[in-house]
Amino acid sequence: MSRSSLFESHEMKIAVILAAHGEAETTRFMENYRVTRQTLAHASQIMHIPGSLQKTIAVTSSLKKLIRSRTNAQCSPHNRITRDQAGALQQYLDSSPSAAAFDFEVHAAFSASPPYVEQIIERTRLYDGQVIVSMSPIDNTLSCGQLCSCLAASHSPEELGKVKVLSRFWSDERLCSIYCDYLFEDVSEHCRPQSAEHNERRVLLLLFHGTLVKDAKGDSPLFRTGREETIQFAERLQALMLSDPRNPYSRIMTVYLNHNVGGEWTRPSFEEVLAMFKEDKKASSVGVDLFGCGYFADGNETIHRAGELLHSSSVSKARSIPCLNSTPLFTAYLASRVIDAARQITSLRGFTFPAL
């Protein structure tokens, strides 16, 4: 069979694996306990977390979610959104001109809940190629670092030649532009035009996953936390948004969602911002939008923040802007990155491309 007919017969089968963190999909205690234990087991591979502390954290975290469900039954949408992202990406790839060259198969997989990333990687390792997408804009040892470690331990050098891991999203100017377009389109749809005087009372909080700065002994972490990447990403987004003529906000702040265990974490934390609004005598006239741009999908860390802000301060209005999730702009962006990666894999293996 000629190389050209290989493409025509769709024999270049490419697995596309969206590797996300994963969260419990209900508020049930045992499901949340298992997910938290899995998360902590991964974390303990790079930092010391005693087994007894892992159990304590898992129990208390799961109990908090169970208790909160009595007044707020909202479950994490994280896994569902990741599956939606996989479905939207599959549909986009199937309808693209590249479908003439590649038979893409998109999977949603998770590190802390099933189906596990490692299982999907193993299930598809005999495909002509694997494109693994680290579903976080920030790179660190716990995300793409563990992906690469898993691949290095399970794949031969020849197999690694047909694998591409997509990361470094934080440094992509095209993605930064997509964030801005998405944000201001959402704002224009949900907020009526207001006077300049009222706009002075509009604040945007950019939410990022916090990182460890110093451990309990005051030393810098010995693993890659992603702190520098987060700071650069946040500064770039903030600069773009402030300079955009569509910007209705007088103030844009970077806020970190910290776990506050094991040492010193990034600042300002969400709790510190809550305290700031609580002490602000003019907060009752302030409207706050919260945008989880440090995440590709909403989950437990983002969906309750607006409610916490309203409950803990005198802020008059607080609204959560959804993460990029499965929006068309983001889907098209991911598809372009996946197609480029598939072309790189096949080029390295000596295939040539028909005109598409």
Rank of each mutant, 00 (worst) to 15 (best):
339 I>H: 05
54 Q>C: 11
199 N>W: 04
324 L>S: 08
231 I>Y: 03
308 E>G: 03
115 P>W: 01
258 N>S: 07
303 I>Q: 02
180 C>L: 09
211 T>P: 10
81 I>S: 07
163 V>Y: 02
88 A>D: 00
319 R>D: 06
229 E>M: 15
46 I>P: 06
43 A>P: 03
217 K>L: 03
140 N>F: 04
16 V>D: 09
173 E>P: 06
19 A>R: 01
29 F>G: 06
252 I>H: 00
81 I>W: 01
100 A>M: 01
213 V>W: 11
314 S>H: 15
63 L>V: 10
273 V>T: 05
85 Q>K: 13
229 E>N: 08
259 H>W: 01
136 S>K: 09
119 Q>A: 11
9 S>R: 14
66 L>H: 12
225 T>K: 06
95 S>K: 15
225 T>P: 02
19 A>K: 01
346 T>S: 02
111 S>H: 10
163 V>M: 05
231 I>F: 09
105 E>P: 12
324 L>G: 08
250 S>W: 07
346 T>E: 15
115 P>A: 05
256 Y>Q: 06
186 D>S: 04
80 R>T: 08
216 A>Q: 10
206 L>M: 12
326 S>N: 11
41 A>E: 12
142 L>G: 00
352 T>H: 02
56 T>N: 12
75 C>K: 02
145 G>H: 14
82 T>M: 05
158 E>K: 08
108 A>C: 10
227 R>A: 07
47 M>K: 15
79 N>H: 05
353 F>P: 04
293 C>K: 05
153 A>R: 11
292 G>S: 10
187 V>G: 05
337 R>N: 14
52 S>D: 11
170 W>N: 00
266 T>A: 12
102 F>Q: 01
337 R>S: 15
298 D>E: 04
292 G>A: 08
118 E>W: 04
53 L>W: 07
52 S>W: 07
239 A>L: 02
215 D>T: 03
199 N>Q: 15
81 I>G: 01
11 E>N: 14
21 H>R: 06
